[in-house]
Nucleic acid binder design. Structure first.
Lengths: 196, 196
DNA sequence: AGTTTTATTAAACACTGTTCAAATTGGGGG
DNA sequence: CCCCCAATTTGAACAGTGTTTAATAAAACT
């Protein structure tokens, strides 16, 4: 009927991402359909494919924002704590866990979702985010416990996986960060003790 | 045309599970369709719904077998190591990781898949499996480091999550257990040191 | 033999992501 | 000022999904 709308109402990438974010955060990746997003926008399904190659593309454009938020928190943890000792390490770990539990759906979308044809979009963001984590932790680790970097590479990776395991579980519970703050601390202390 | 087959060729739960397992292990939960399973069996899609309420039901009936295999390995780890010290703990952790990496698809199906309407089937199996883990670890922990059980409850849970994080990542890589055995050991040593 | 139960089928329903020819609008060049 | 072209949107279509259901035939029981 109206194959093109007035230019002032034209669809923009930003507007799509806005609505998409809302729906992805509320319902997760699988239960959001391109048709649903288009409907909410008042457009037809096909129009989305003019602005994004596919669902995975639209999705990853959205999560990129979350990754940079996490990056910011890690930088903050580093700059907040004056010297790179044990306290900073504790803060980094805690920041990671807190981010996950205060943004459960985001964390799930960033790290836990894996669909065919999504990897090629999300891998870069993930690697970038881990790099931030690595650099921050490595600096502290070399001060606390002056091992060579080669050994740290593996150690930091294992630490990351451990934190990841913790967060990944509580993502799917309905407990808040505050509810499990003590447990998070126990986890962190376990790792720190193992580090010394 | 032939609304019922000769009794000697009747479809059985076991036969369905056999084919389903094959397909689920090969392609994962999402990429296996009821139509595909039925086709492989030479039956129509609807017939599966006579034997199982839904896809999730069929699926969980299949994973139940994997859970009991894991249970067996944990029991073996306990009975193999003579006394419940640090060595047994190490063996328990290693057994868990090894199981995950030598049965990647199974582990994924058991722990990592979550679909709407699947939880009600899989929760019991998961809890049962964790209970085995808990009892085994608790016994060792009380010997090594005689803390009260109340404290152990949280500690063991956190250990489980940590191991889980490690395995969950490598499930999706194409590295074998042997490839990352050294890294697994590093992870385990980190946890054990934190425990002392 | 007649009746009931059990197992199976095909078709249908309501979804999904994606593609594409067609159609209309807005802007730039002549 | 007008025309054409490029940009943008549409709706139908395709191939797929899990699940439901009436019909149906074989088997089991009486």
């Amino acid at each position: 009927m109206t194959p093109r709308k007035a230019v002032e109402h034209e669809l923009s990438r930003e507007r799509i991402l806005e609505v998409a974010r809302e729906q992805f955060v509320q319902h997760g990746y699988r239960d959001v359909s391109m048709r649903g997003i288009a409907k909410e926008l008042g457009y037809s399904p096909g129009s989305l494919y003019y602005h994004f190659r596919e669902k995975a593309d639209l999705f990853s454009a959205m999560t990129a924002e979350d990754f940079s938020q996490l990056d910011g928190l890690l930088e903050e943890a580093v700059s907040t704590s004056p010297n790179p000792g044990r306290d900073r390490l504790e803060l980094i770990f805690l920041s990671f866990i807190r981010f996950g539990l205060e943004n459960k759906r985001s964390f799930e979308l960033m790290f836990l979702i894996q669909e065919p044809g999504l990897d090629c979009y999300t891998t870069q963001s993930k690697m970038g985010s881990y790099e931030k984590f690595f650099i921050a932790v490595n600096e502290s680790l070399q001060v606390i416990n002056n091992t060579d970097l080669a050994k740290n590479v593996e150690l930091i990776w294992v630490l990351f996986l451990s934190l990841h395991g913790f967060v990944s579980f509580y993502i799917h519970s309905d407990q808040s960060f505050d509810d499990i703050a003590k447990l998070a601390d126990l986890h962190i202390q376990l790792l720190l003790r193992g580090l010394m």
